[in-house]
Amino acid sequence: MTTLNINKKTYNLDLYGNETLLEVLRDNLKLTGTKTACDEAQCGSCTVLIDGKSFLSCITLAKDVEGKEITTIEGLSSEEDLHVIQQAFLDNGAVQCGFCAPGFILSTKALLDKNPSPNLDEIKKSLDGHICRCGGYLKIFDAVKDASKKITNHDT
């Protein structure tokens, strides 16, 4: 039996052992917010947070993350409101087809938790593991800056 802590809930799963975390999230738990795109660690669509850091779930074995705190895009917001980063992405037109968005948003969460006021170079460096096939990078950077402002204003 494999016990996974996902979005502050505990799941006890009967796994073979060769499942990636991405497969468990989408197929076993129907948490389909985390996307399968390239499936070879190039695009960032499968990004989740593990103990607050961004990881690629398509190359993470589910059994390897027992005992870790896993956060998917579903775990970011409450039932009523979107997270400030999600809202910033919407407000700034950073979501076109939306497929890359969950990954970008979670990496942004990891960045702003560690560095609430990143400059543009720090934003680009932190998001270097993501591809947006729609080409929406500039809007995404605007959204990150917007979220950063909202978070730091809220804290002060």
Binding site: G44, F55, L56
Partner: peptide, 9 residues
């Protein structure tokens, strides 16, 4: 080396 996620792993 590689990307942020890869460097975390």
């Amino acid at each position: 080396i590689a990307t942020t996620q890869i460097r975390n792993m």
